[in-house]
Design a protein around this nucleic acid. Sequence first.
DNA 1: GTACATGATGAAACGCGTTTCATAACAAGC
DNA 2: GCTTGTTATGAAACGCGTTTCATCATGTAC
Lengths: 319, 319
Amino acid sequence: MANIKDIAKMANVSITTVSRVLNNHPYVSLKKREAVWQAMKESNYQKNLNAVHLSTGKTHLIGVVLPFSNHPYFGLLLEGIATEAVKNNYKLVLFQTNYEETREVEALDMLKHKQIDALIVCSRICSWSTIKDYAGYGPIVFCEDTREQPFSATFVDHYKSFQTALHYLADKGHKKIGYCIGRSSGANSTNRALAYKDFLTKRKLPFHPEYIFKQCLHLEDGENVVSKITNMKEPPTALLVTSDQVAAGIAASSLANKISIPQEIAIIGFDNQPISKVMGITTMEIPLVEIGRNLFSQSVQNHISYKEMDVTLIERNTV
Amino acid sequence: MANIKDIAKMANVSITTVSRVLNNHPYVSLKKREAVWQAMKESNYQKNLNAVHLSTGKTHLIGVVLPFSNHPYFGLLLEGIATEAVKNNYKLVLFQTNYEETREVEALDMLKHKQIDALIVCSRICSWSTIKDYAGYGPIVFCEDTREQPFSATFVDHYKSFQTALHYLADKGHKKIGYCIGRSSGANSTNRALAYKDFLTKRKLPFHPEYIFKQCLHLEDGENVVSKITNMKEPPTALLVTSDQVAAGIAASSLANKISIPQEIAIIGFDNQPISKVMGITTMEIPLVEIGRNLFSQSVQNHISYKEMDVTLIERNTV
DNA sequence: GTACATGATGAAACGCGTTTCATAACAAGC
DNA sequence: GCTTGTTATGAAACGCGTTTCATCATGTAC
């Protein structure tokens, strides 16, 4: 395989000149330029990108950390990131963590080792103190409120949006409101739990721990929620479901179990995923694609910025 | 930032010895080994992976070409690929093509330029003649029957599985059977079209071009199908739907339009995605995760292999 | 005591493109 | 005629880890 040196020899010019031709630098005479082109064609020359990366210290690769790549929530986020990446001629390196901290550290290490130029963390597991060790090796951006941290982020006010939804349900007359959440740790979940607690206090409603359904991440988890509810003496009359996927699962399972929505139980999903539209589920729209795009933009910037996105209630037929 | 040379100087050993310590080569005395460790700790040494890549000619990066990353079909495939990649200490570079040929060529170019060690094409657009130009730069594996091509693949017999499903419906008494397909070009779609034609001929059934619904890729497309069907004088009584997503969309839309399934229209989905289980949709299970795993394995092998996977009919409540 | 395997270590070549700096030629400006 | 700016070109340094090859010390074998 020919390298830049071979081309230089063949075209009877210096390596520098070949490099100039490769990178469209203006100061090369047409004559030499053509000689180089000729040599490249003859030898089927291919740039070795690894040499470029070593030399420039950049790879045009952005890491994306997410727990599951086949979950619609992250799918939408990824779509936004990918769209913007394509536009800016960057490629994405996927780090599927399955919520294992090791995987996240691996991604951070790749930033340190210069295999990626920046890192987008869609769902964080590592502590801030761990992550701070990696500041300085390149931008790291997050999908949660980091205004107390020296890292860029695009996020949504989960406290506010949760409250909005809760009060909306309360205003419709619901007094027994529960919610479904994914992983119970994590910044976003903590905010939501707090919003729930504050809501109950404000409305002077009792706290039922059994109204909180944890581990609700996937479509199938909805089934579980419904089976739990059917076995309750005093089931909730409304449910805030932090993923449209789970909300859809609940809707489907309710149908199968002849539980009518919203008469027997009202539900509000989150994200406004396609499935919520198709199944007519009321939902809190989180502009995930837009968030993804913005995350990408932040990842290729050198300064820190914080961007909050709005959440919109979309009324359909499940409340 | 310290490099291997600095470490060598600090520890008073040669660069080679440092490299040996870095790569756990046995022939280093404990004394020197510790001196190197000490130096690495003191200077917070970090390997520059780009230098490693340049030197070794490998990146431990595998490219994955797919049209949409947020589609459950590709999500499952990706999950399988990612699982195996993690195990083997490889990372994935995502190429979301949106079915644009340029994007696929970009991925192939990255293989040529050694930024990735191999390429997994989940859905091909380029012609074989284009792709053949890239053979030799590294393994390229596919998700379709390539037994006539010098490229590895893990695939499913779409002709056979389509026929199985069609005859199953015919055996249940259906005479007006249609099908929904994603993009109409593409090897898999062609096979399915052929299976359909052969089926009609064999069963001596008439061909209704309007029973073929194209552009059925996403959940939302199901709505479209239902609205078309409701406007037909002589609608099909059964539908083969090449994606559970679309099948779910059809089921949801039918429910909204008070069309009963399977009484008025029977449907069989494909893939056995979670949604088909939740909604009780009869489906042809394609072991996507398993296929993904195998694709990965093939991508890190040096020989060409072909692996066919079985498709299984899963009977639920929509036929 | 000679022969051969094994452990330990380092110099140097290798992979390869980018970029800085120096130099030279030539045109334009005063 | 001299300064200054622009075009054109190449040598050399730079980014940095891996690997081959040569060398030398020990230990084991017969």
